[in-house]
């Protein structure tokens, strides 16, 4: 089969390089890249770590759609050449490797990090939050993010408005705002009311379509919006 791979390094022009790979049964996109790198072109750069779909390091755009290379079988892709390029919206480092720092920076801007509340800090016993509580069920549906960045790459608004925090950061904000142990709800509530945040999402749900962990950032953003409205009307949580 033909694999067309995006190549770029500092000082050179970006191009799609064509390779022939013997596609064998069971091979994933990552397997094909590893085989190329080991046997045909040692200079090809890409990133992977766990290789079983847990670390989120090998996200890339395969045939125009964000996918995890380690869990994408070549046989599940459309017939014909397979085109592999790096994630969109992230600065390039080399070939398929991008700099994930912008996603982290957006998280920090949105204060999307747990801050222990006063009760949690007293910390001599575990918070008692039932498995079937509304809080826990809402969080459970949105928490298993592997940080792969596919949602950010697929989001048209991230490309359009550099100040939009993007689906990953807002999903984490959502889980934190539902977390009764957290002590920084007020600051985050203000942060999400800024002009370029919640109202910017147009609900196209590309993020939800590509998430390999079946999380729906779209739902998280809508839920944050509902809470913001209720709060502004003075009838919502804090």
């Amino acid at each position: 089969m033909v694999l067309r791979v995006f190549r770029w390094s500092p000082g050179s022009r970006e191009r799609l390089q064509k390779y022939w790979v013997k596609a064998r049964h069971g091979m994933t996109v990552l397997d094909a890249l590893v085989e190329l790198q080991r046997n045909s072109d040692a200079t090809l750069a890409f990133r992977y770590a766990c290789r079983v779909g847990m670390c989120g390091s090998c996200a890339m755009v395969v045939n125009g759609r964000e996918r995890w290379a380690c869990r994408t079988l070549l046989s599940n892709l459309a017939r014909g050449p397979v085109t592999v390029r790096p994630l969109y919206q992230f600065p390039l480092i080399r070939d398929l490797v991008v700099d994930m720092a912008p996603m982290k920076n957006k998280m920090l801007e949105m204060k999307a990090v747990f801050v222990p509340g006063r009760r949690a800090m007293a910390g001599d016993e575990f918070a008692q939050i039932g498995s079937r509580s509304r809080e826990r069920r809402a969080i459970d549906a949105a928490i298993e993010c592997i940080g792969c960045g596919m949602c950010v790459s697929a989001c048209t608004m991230v490309g359009h408005d550099p100040r939009f925090p993007g689906p990953a950061a807002l999903t984490r904000v959502f889980t934190l705002q539902r977390d009764s142990r957290d002590g920084a709800h007020a600051g985050r509530s203000l942060a999400v009311l800024a002009e370029d945040v919640l109202t910017r999402c147009h609900g196209q749900a590309n993020c939800t379509a590509v998430c390999p962990m079946e999380i729906s950032p779209t739902d998280s953003i809508l839920a944050l919006r509902r809470r913001a409205v209720l709060r502004l009307l003075g009838i919502g949580p804090r």
Binding site: A120, D124, G130, S131, L176
Partner: peptide, 19 residues
């Protein structure tokens, strides 16, 4: 306890809230 209370980890719980 530190993972949960200081860093915000979630662990599975019983319906009554116990870990």
């Amino acid at each position: 306890l530190e993972l949960e209370a200081r860093y915000g980890c979630f662990f599975d719980r019983h319906p009554d809230g116990r870990i």
